[in-house]
Amino acid sequence: MEKFTELEAIAAPLIRINIDTDVIIPSREMKRVSKDGLSDGMFANWRYTEPGGREENPDFVLNREPYRQAKILLTGDNFGCGSSREHAVWALAEWGIRCIIAPGFGNIFYGNCVRNGILPVILPEETVSGLVRQVEEDPARNMLQVDLIHCMVGAPDGTTNSFEIAPADQEMLLEGLDAIAVTRRRDDEILAFQGRDRLKRPWIYL
């Protein structure tokens, strides 16, 4: 997994509440046996003029310059609610999103983000609106700075906003670890367990 330490990037505002995973990636867009190739279908219902079509809707924020280069998403409360489909996070990551700033996230989605190298940042609604206002004045210049080591989001006007993240999640992102890698650190323990268990329950070991 790609490490996340610091990021300075264009932020795109997509301010609506309750954007669910079905909106982030409609089920008809999950056609392949893969975590890849999903970015094309990301926000398909909003991004394209017709369902299933590929003609871009010029009004959708991520279709406009310079937001096409955005790596940060500023959005509304309860982002990523709904079904547990991890495809939503895979699609966002592939498109290039590295950080999502919102007043709140869907529970499973939040965990999926951390597991896939996207930093979910929770900031109060007023703070998010404040960032949106500054960004919109000149999106290409007014970039946001996100620092995961110090848990800070720096605004274009120089103010900083601190956020909270669970130490285990922070470590996973900073070191680019995934859950498997974290568990792998206990491999000695696992293998020792397996050795003892093999004697105790040999029929389990085919």
């Binding site: 547990s84 991890e86 999926n112 597991r115 859950a179 498997i180 792998r184 491999d187 696992i190 397996q194």
Partner: peptide
């Protein structure tokens, strides 16, 4: 879930 399945496959 699918990612958990990967975890179980890789680490037991």
């Amino acid at each position: 879930g699918s990612t958990e399945a990967e975890h179980a496959l890789a680490t037991k």
